[in-house]
């Protein structure tokens, strides 16, 4: 097994008919067992990056390799555990939590066969691993946001995914639920050695959530700030309010005018004990994938 779980090189993507590219010259490396948090404002290309990484969009320019394969091949081999954003439609769907996990576990089985015992056991283990054992038989419509999110993680575990890609995992989940979810993700990384890419527009997820508090940041954990290009790619200690203000700035400035801009990210970071100006080193524009890390 190689040391690199996902490798993105000089990736650009323009939606058909769009005037400007959604992503331009992105280079990122995700090492095995690492947690990479991708932050950026809405419309900054985070979802596009996720869709390219899990094989939902075709790579136009540049290269994406997931565990040494193309994203499509990695997906078909069950290596990618995609945890999408929550949507309304799913919640009206008449399936139990267990059936959601079984949908993924049943991929590739011949139609005339039921789920074999070994896969059934894996489904049960995945549900237990995320703490969904006691509500496994409940319809998904009766689950809380946090519970449903854990079921989606179990679905990824049941196929034996090695790379977990989480798209805005804490949206619509209360604070206690977010904390439990964070602990779960950290546990999976520690105990199963999973590689995790987490995408969020919510800076609190990154500051407190994903890294379990500043004190627990491990050497391998990194943050990438994304607004069309990668603005930063390094250990989270290097994320400064100034950097965040820059990445998020234009977005906010368009909405509220310049006065709100500086206050917003500083307040977010200060709330979680970052020393606001401790790391005054700026940011490298563009392709700085090699930089950062521990």
């Amino acid at each position: 097994m190689t040391d690199v779980a996902a490798e993105i090189r000089d990736l650009s993507f323009t939606y058909p008919g769009a005037a400007a590219p959604a992503l331009e010259g992105i280079s990122l490396t995700v090492r095995n067992g690492e947690l990479l948090a991708v932050v950026g404002p809405n419309g900054g290309g985070k979802s596009t990056l996720v869709r390219l990484l899990v094989g939902l969009l075709p790579v136009q320019r540049g290269e994406v390799r997931v565990l040494g394969r193309s994203p499509r091949d990695a997906a078909r081999a069950g290596l990618i555990g995609y945890v999408p954003q929550r949507s309304e439609a799913e919640l009206n769907f008449p399936v139990s939590a267990r059936q959601v996990v079984e949908m993924a576990a049943g991929i590739g089985l011949p139609p005339w066969r039921g789920l074999p015992g070994e896969r059934r056991r894996r489904v049960g283990e995945a549900l237990a691993r995320v703490g969904a054992g006691e509500f496994a038989e409940r319809p998904v419509g009766e689950l809380s946001g946090g519970q449903f999110q854990r079921v989606l993680v179990a679905r990824a575990l049941a196929v034996g995914a090695r790379l977990l890609v989480l798209d805005e995992p804490t949206v619509g989940i209360d604070v206690a639920g977010q904390r439990r979810f964070t602990e779960l993700i950290q546990g999976l990384r520690r105990e199963l050695g999973l590689t995790i890419v987490l995408v969020s527009h919510d800076l609190r997820t990154i500051a407190a959530g994903a890294f379990g508090g500043v004190g627990e940041v491990s050497a391998g954990d990194r943050v990438a700030c994304l607004r069309r290009t990668v603005h930063f790619h390094a250990a989270p200690a290097g994320v400064t309010p100034r950097l965040l203000a820059e990445v998020f700035q234009h977005d906010l400035a368009d909405l509220f005018g310049p006065t709100h801009v500086d206050a917003h990210p500083e307040a977010e970071c200060a709330a979680h004990g970052h020393a606001p100006h401790a790391h005054p080193h700026g940011h490298a524009h563009g392709r700085d994938s090699a930089g950062g890390g521990g």
Partner: peptide, 16 residues
């Protein structure tokens, strides 16, 4: 495949 697609099309695609 019908059920997974109906439940969550992007996830179904990403799971193969």
């Amino acid at each position: 495949p019908l059920l997974f697609w109906a439940f969550d099309e992007p996830a179904a695609e990403a799971f193969g």
